[in-house]
Structures are given as structure tokens and as C-alpha cells.
């Protein structure tokens, strides 16, 4: 099967270019992000300042649309429980 047969959109090309701009030498991977994202979500919900580990989660979420989608869903659940 071919990849989705549609033209590349401005949003797609822009998001990859944005990813390149945000790329750093050392990054968390998705598994590391998953391990810490709960703590990051609770920190964000409590409007607390982020430490270095939490900042690296934030950077990964800016780069990774999948982890960001899951983080946003987690925030929805936590906010519903407040």
C-alpha cells in the first residue's frame, strides 16, 4: 500500500522544519518521556515551575506529536478529575 496519497501540506512541511529547528544534541526518547510525563502533567496542572528533567519532557513534547497527543489526553483526564 502506498503512503496516504495526498500532497504534502504546509502544516506537515512546517512541522518537520520546526522539529529540525528544535533538534538538540541530547534528547529524551518516547519511552523516557512516557516514564516522566505523569509527573510533568501534575506539575503543569499545579502551575509549578519545571526542573531540568521536566524541561526535557517539555522539549520532547514540542518535537513529538504522538507524545504530545497523549499528554494532552492525559491533561483532559486529570482536569476532568479536579
Amino acid at each position: 500500500m502506498k503512503p496516504p496519497d495526498q500532497q504534502l501540506t504546509s502544516a506537515q512541511v512546517g512541522s518537520v522544519l520546526k522539529m529540525l529547528a528544535l533538534t538538540t544534541e541530547r534528547e529524551l526518547n518516547c519511552s523516557e518521556c512516557l516514564q516522566h510525563v505523569g509527573e510533568f502533567a501534575e506539575t503543569r496542572l499545579a502551575s509549578q515551575p519545571v526542573d531540568a528533567v521536566m524541561a526535557s519532557i517539555e522539549q520532547h513534547l514540542a518535537l513529538c506529536p504522538e507524545c504530545r497527543e497523549e499528554f494532552e489526553a492525559l491533561m483532559t483526564i486529570l482536569q476532568a478529575g479536579q
Binding site: 512516557l34 505523569g38 509527573e39 502533567a41 501534575e42 504522538e66 492525559l74 483526564i77
Partner: peptide, 16 residues
Amino acid sequence: SKFTTWAQAIALNTAF
């Protein structure tokens, strides 16, 4: 984090 938050993150990752 709370255990349930950690577990929900894993559940969301599984589902998505």
C-alpha cells in the same frame, strides 16, 4: 506522580 496518573499515561500510550 500519583500512581493513577502514571498508569493512565501508560493506558493512553497503549490506546493511541
